[in-house]
């Protein structure tokens, strides 16, 4: 299966700490920080490195301050497979 890796960038200065993004995140990647921004709001931070880039958080954010990135690594195909005569050792070289 292709591996999906996502990441987000939040403009924390404009975050109002409503937590709608955190509750919409299927990966539970987001949490309110203890720190506050210059407006006095606790802002959202990513606490886990398991984001899939599903965009849910960005869709529900009323401030429109979340950028979402997604990278899909295609499964690496072996470029050579060497087996000995008895077939009990297989060496696979990946690109």
């Amino acid at each position: 299966m292709a591996k999906v890796k996502g990441d987000i960038i939040i403009d924390i200065e404009k975050c109002k700490g409503c937590e709608l993004c955190a509750s919409a995140c299927p990966q539970d990647s987001l949490e309110l920080s203890r720190k506050i921004n210059s407006k006095g709001y606790h802002y959202i931070v990513k606490i886990e490195d398991n984001c899939t880039g599903c965009t849910n958080c960005a869709l529900v954010c009323p401030e429109g301050i979340i950028k979402v990135y997604r990278k899909t690594d295609k499964k690496k195909e072996p470029i050579a497979t060497i087996a000995n005569v008895t077939g009990d050792i297989t060496v696979t070289v990946q690109s």
């Binding site: 990441d7 404009k14 109002k16 700490g17 409503c18 937590e19 709608l20 709001y41 880039g53 965009t55 960005a58 869709l59 954010c61 009323p62 401030e63 429109g64 301050i65 979340i66 950028k67 979402v68 990135y69 997604r70 990278k71």
Partner: peptide, 24 residues
Amino acid sequence: NLVYEKPETLTDTPMHYCPGCGHG
């Protein structure tokens, strides 16, 4: 890898709405 970003027609002005308000 960018898959979502705020639309250009939405200005950078911070909105005056209360936190979590659907107007945004």
